[in-house]
Design a protein around this nucleic acid. Structure first.
Lengths: 129, 129
DNA sequence: TTGGGTGCAAATCTTTTGCAGGTGT
DNA sequence: ACACCTGCAAAAGATTTGCACCCAA
């Protein structure tokens, strides 16, 4: 495995993600990084997002129909996706780890993790109806 | 909303999905449809998969990293994705509907559904290690 | 007859990758 | 110096869309 070397770009990307409560796509990260590094490339953003999520410093939220979203928060939590506006929100829940393990029946594989997403209307979209 | 009109292609696509226990991608559906309609187009397959999932006759499983998968079974059930071979399996679980609703805290939006996925090694990939 | 459905091909969107030069250690 | 990292641009993969023709109702 390759040795990790410091890079300003990577540091900034990680910092940026940790300050955001929404869950930006690669493109949004790119637009924001351009404010700091005017000629950073989209490829670099993708490479670093992918690298950071590989080493577990950020979380990649795969496709809700469009582009992937990235989450600077790696402690386990669930997400809510608004079916109207597409917004991705964090959700507070009881701890579900034990629940999850116990509820699976008749499976001889090995479960190492899970991903739970809720769908519906976010507070704002409910109001607008 | 447009009136739905019969189409042989759509019927076949739905039938095909219902006979499959795995969760084929659009491309796999396309390859199999070509056996029946030698010059069916990929666009038609995508249009119908999208239409069928809009009206709730099939289920679209968005991106596990690659192409979307489609499930002819619409009764609620969880999925397992093998992190080694990428296979998607159905999983038997306790009924989780009530569990899910109860576990969410402090959320003022409206939850209408959820999607639960487990990750790990499938039985076959465990053996090969 | 009319509006949805189809095949075909081009376009779009997202993400990955090859390459030559730059930079951290 | 060596290996990783970057910008750039091209490529790749998945899905959507415009168009002219076809077919179910």
């Amino acid at each position: 495995m390759a040795t990790l070397k410091y890079s300003r770009q990577r540091e900034s990307i990680k910092e940026f993600l940790m300050t955001r409560k929404d869950h930006p796509t690669a493109d949004v990260v790119y637009e924001n990084m351009k404010k700091i590094y005017s000629n950073i490339s989209l490829g670099t953003v993708y490479r670093n997002l992918s690298l950071l999520s590989d080493i577990g410093e950020i979380q990649k939220l795969s496709s809700f129909g469009g582009a992937d979203h990235f989450d600077g928060c790696v402690t386990p939590h669930c997400h809510f996706i608004c079916t109207d506006c597409g917004q991705v929100l964090d959700l507070e829940t009881d701890d579900m780890n034990r629940l999850m393990e116990k509820s699976v029946k008749n499976f001889s594989g090995k479960i190492t993790g899970y991903d739970l997403r809720f769908f519906g209307l976010c507070p704002r979209c409910i109001t607008h109806r």
